Simulated assay, not measured.
Amino acid sequence: MFETLKVFLRNKKALIGLIIVLLYVAVAVFGPMLLNLDPMQRVGRPHQPPNPDELLGTTRMGRDVFAQLIYGTRTSLAVGFFAGIIIVLIGTVLGIAAGYFGGWIDEIISFFTNVVLVIPQLPLLLVIAAFMGQTNPAVIAIIIGMTSWAWGARVTRSQTLTLRNREYILASELIGERPTRMIFVELLPNLLSIIGFNFIGSVTYTIITQATLEFLGLGNPMSVSWGTMLYHAQNASAISVGAWWEVLVPAVAVAGIGVGLSLLNFGVDEISNPRLRTLGTVAAAIKAQKKIDQQRLAEVKP
């Protein structure tokens, strides 16, 4: 466990990504409590630029953009993590079941996985969201979670098939170990890196997709999230009237969490890929050797 954490934190990109994500989480958890301001309340004149009283300006309705950013962070992250958990649970359960049990179970799961993979994701979400009308963030999270598990299930199945034929798995089966113990004790710990990679990717995809759906007007305009902020800015023609902050603030927020989660993926990738781990060790050894050589040259020179 500590060795895995050490490998993860050794990657500077992953460490920066972790700091960025934790900063967003801290804002989402503690921001609304510290701010104590209703994001839907009118606090100033319409389209007021950033100033000491309204740090990020106001919207066309005179609402505080900073307050909306704080509350929107909570909503968007909650949707991202909720949908990510749904995607990981469905994908992991189906992937392990297909890879471990095989036979007709694998055929049925693989059939449904292929069907979901073939269907274009975004058009499907647009159709479902449009059919349901204006949907709240929780419903959007469920829709995304229930329609985005196929890729994770396919990857988990492939990795499970690889582990299924390992000697320690076959030996455990020969001595009569139960399937539940085989899955939870032998297989699942070796799939944690794949599950983590799937979860991070799912959260990133969900946040961007939610913002897209709400920007197109398929979300609840009375909720506060990054997507609804962009939707209201578009309806108010914010760019045309010079209120650039209304568009820039939520756009930067979406881009920032995307960068943080992407950098975090580097650490997960290094943990799950022994070759990358070896390359990192070799690079560190080469760097240390160069330092030693430079010190020796400095000592030899008069």
Rank of each mutant, 00 (worst) to 15 (best):
V300T: 15
S202A: 15
R181C: 05
A138T: 07
R164G: 07
Q41M: 11
T209H: 07
L9N: 02
P49T: 12
K12G: 07
I292Y: 04
T156Q: 06
H232Y: 14
I183N: 09
H47E: 09
L297P: 00
L174M: 15
M33Q: 10
R60C: 01
Y231L: 14
I109F: 09
I271Q: 01
Y100F: 15
S172Q: 10
L264R: 00
L218F: 13
G91F: 03
A130T: 14
E3V: 09
G258C: 02
P46K: 04
Q68M: 15
I108M: 10
V25L: 08
L117V: 12
W104L: 11
S223F: 05
A171V: 13
V268M: 04
K291A: 12
G57L: 06
A78K: 04
K287V: 01
V268A: 05
R296E: 13
F30V: 09
L94P: 03
I90H: 06
R275K: 08
Q48T: 15
I286P: 00
I144M: 06
V282L: 14
Y100N: 04
R60Q: 12
L218Y: 10
A97P: 01
F2L: 06
N114V: 02
Q121N: 09
E107N: 05
A238F: 12
S110F: 02
M222Y: 13
T162K: 10
M182L: 15
Q294M: 11
L263M: 14
V118H: 02
T206H: 08
G17I: 04
A288Q: 12
P189D: 13
P39V: 08
L163W: 05
Q68C: 04
P49G: 08
R60S: 11
I257T: 01
Q134W: 03
V65F: 07
W226L: 11
A288M: 10
R154E: 00
F131I: 11
L69T: 01
N235F: 09
I85T: 10
D106I: 01
Y231R: 10
I19F: 10
V43H: 04
P46R: 09
W226D: 12
R181T: 13
R178Y: 10
F111M: 13
G31W: 00
V79C: 06
Q295R: 11
I175V: 15
P137C: 06
G196T: 10
N165L: 07
N114I: 01
F2I: 11
R45H: 08
A255G: 02
A171Q: 13
M61Y: 03
L5W: 08
G242K: 09
G44P: 05
R63H: 07
A138I: 08
G80A: 11
T4W: 09
G80K: 05
L122R: 05
G256Q: 01
Q289A: 13
L264Q: 02
V224Q: 11
I128A: 08
T147E: 04
I142A: 09
W151A: 03
M33P: 00
T206K: 05
Q210F: 03
F266T: 14
M182A: 13
M33E: 04
G99R: 01
L9S: 07
G280E: 07
G95V: 02
S272Q: 03
Y24E: 00
T59H: 08
S202W: 10
S225M: 13
Y205T: 12
V259Y: 03
V27H: 00
E173L: 15
L163S: 09
I239L: 15
A251Q: 02
K6G: 04
F82Q: 03
T281S: 10
I70V: 14
W104I: 10
L264T: 03
F82P: 00
A98F: 03
V43P: 02
S110R: 05
N165M: 11
